[in-house]
Amino acid sequence: MDVFMKGLSKAKEGVVAAAEKTKQGVAEAAGKTKEGVLYVGSKTKEGVVHGVATVAEKTKEQVTNVGGAVVTGVTAVAQKTVEGAGSIAAATGFVKKDQLGKNEEGAPQEGILEDMPVDPDNEAYEMPSEEGYQDYEPEA
């Protein structure tokens, strides 16, 4: 019985440690998101679009440190934060509304985080759909 109880105690310690790591990862992701939003706020009209992409990228980098179902929630929060940063930029006159959601080359930025393969159960990952990809044929 002692062996059984000791095993359960060790398992509990492992769960607590994993929860603490997840909590730490979420806190880091939130900190990076805040950094990115402050970065966007300090940019001029020309830099705002690039700044919004930076927020998304920093958040995406930190999301990889967070495991399990938390990833889905962090990704949703990050996307809403990026959308909010863009709205703030438009409201303050840093950028025109028609410039939001495009990178410096004018290509749409939507789907940055949505296409990231995420499995809350950590069982399997699927690649994003290939609808947006084109076949590449090298020139002879």
Rank of each mutant, 00 (worst) to 15 (best):
M1P: 00
D2V: 03
D2L: 14
V3W: 05
V3R: 12
V3C: 03
V3S: 07
V3M: 07
V3N: 10
M5L: 01
M5C: 04
M5D: 01
M5V: 14
M5H: 00
M5S: 05
K6C: 04
K6D: 02
K6R: 08
G7R: 15
G7P: 04
L8S: 01
L8K: 00
L8A: 02
L8I: 10
L8W: 09
K10E: 01
K10R: 06
A11G: 08
K12W: 06
K12F: 04
G14F: 13
G14A: 06
G14T: 14
G14D: 03
V16C: 05
V16Y: 14
V16W: 14
A17Q: 14
A17S: 11
A19R: 05
A19K: 04
A19M: 06
E20Y: 14
E20L: 14
K21A: 06
K21W: 13
K21N: 11
K21E: 01
T22A: 06
T22D: 00
T22R: 02
K23W: 06
Q24V: 09
Q24G: 04
A27Y: 13
E28L: 07
A29L: 08
A30E: 00
G31T: 03
G31S: 15
G31W: 12
G31I: 07
G31K: 15
K32M: 12
K32S: 06
T33L: 06
K34R: 03
K34Q: 00
K34C: 06
E35N: 14
E35W: 14
E35G: 03
E35P: 01
G36I: 08
G36W: 06
G36H: 15
V37E: 00
L38A: 07
L38I: 01
L38G: 02
Y39D: 01
Y39I: 10
V40W: 02
V40E: 00
V40G: 01
G41F: 09
G41A: 15
S42T: 03
S42C: 04
K43V: 09
K43C: 09
T44W: 10
T44C: 12
T44Y: 12
T44S: 09
K45G: 05
K45L: 07
K45P: 01
K45H: 01
K45N: 03
E46F: 15
E46A: 11
G47E: 05
G47I: 11
V48D: 00
V48W: 07
V48M: 12
V49G: 02
V49K: 14
H50F: 04
H50Q: 08
G51P: 04
G51Q: 06
G51E: 01
A53P: 03
T54A: 06
T54G: 05
V55N: 00
V55P: 00
V55Q: 01
A56C: 15
A56K: 08
A56R: 14
E57M: 04
E57T: 09
T59G: 08
K60E: 02
K60T: 06
K60N: 01
E61Q: 09
E61Y: 04
E61S: 07
Q62S: 13
Q62P: 02
Q62C: 13
Q62K: 04
V63Q: 01
V63G: 03
V63S: 02
V63P: 00
T64L: 14
N65T: 14
V66K: 02
V66E: 00
G67D: 00
G67T: 13
G67V: 13
G68T: 10
A69T: 00
A69S: 07
A69Q: 11
A69G: 07
A69R: 03
V70W: 09
V70C: 03
V70S: 02
V70G: 01
V71G: 02
G73Q: 10
G73F: 04
T75C: 08
T75M: 09
T75G: 07
A76L: 12
A76R: 08
V77N: 01
V77E: 02
V77L: 14
V77Q: 02
A78R: 12
Q79A: 09
Q79L: 09
Q79D: 03
T81W: 03
T81D: 00
T81G: 04
V82K: 08
V82M: 12
V82L: 06
V82A: 14
V82G: 03
E83D: 04
G84M: 11
G84C: 13
G84H: 04
A85E: 01
A85V: 09
A85L: 14
G86E: 07
G86Y: 09
G86F: 15
S87P: 07
S87G: 14
S87C: 11
S87L: 12
I88E: 01
A89P: 05
A89T: 09
A89F: 11
A89K: 07
A89Y: 09
A90P: 02
A90D: 03
A90C: 15
A91V: 05
A91E: 04
A91Q: 05
A91T: 06
T92H: 06
G93T: 05
G93E: 02
G93P: 09
G93R: 03
G93K: 14
F94R: 01
F94I: 02
V95Y: 15
V95R: 13
V95T: 06
K96G: 09
K96V: 08
K96D: 06
D98W: 12
D98T: 11
D98I: 07
Q99S: 08
L100Q: 13
L100F: 01
G101H: 07
G101Q: 08
N103K: 04
N103L: 11
N103I: 09
N103Q: 10
E104N: 15
E104L: 09
E105G: 13
E105M: 06
E105F: 05
E105T: 12
G106I: 11
G106K: 12
A107D: 08
A107E: 04
A107V: 07
A107W: 07
Q109F: 07
Q109D: 03
Q109G: 03
E110L: 14
E110T: 11
I112M: 07
I112P: 11
L113G: 08
E114A: 05
D115W: 04
D115P: 13
D115G: 13
P117K: 05
P117H: 03
P117W: 07
P117F: 09
V118F: 08
V118W: 05
D119E: 06
D119N: 06
D119K: 02
P120S: 08
P120R: 11
D121F: 11
N122M: 13
N122C: 03
N122V: 13
N122H: 06
E123D: 12
E123S: 06
A124E: 09
A124Q: 05
A124F: 15
A124G: 07
Y125S: 05
E126M: 05
M127V: 14
M127C: 07
P128G: 09
P128R: 12
P128I: 12
S129A: 05
S129E: 11
E130H: 08
E130Q: 10
E130P: 12
E130T: 11
E130K: 13
E131I: 10
E131S: 13
E131Q: 14
G132K: 11
G132E: 09
Y133F: 13
Y133G: 11
Y133W: 09
Q134H: 02
Q134S: 06
Q134T: 04
Y136S: 06
E137P: 08
E137D: 08
E137W: 05
P138V: 10
A140S: 12
A140W: 13
A140C: 13
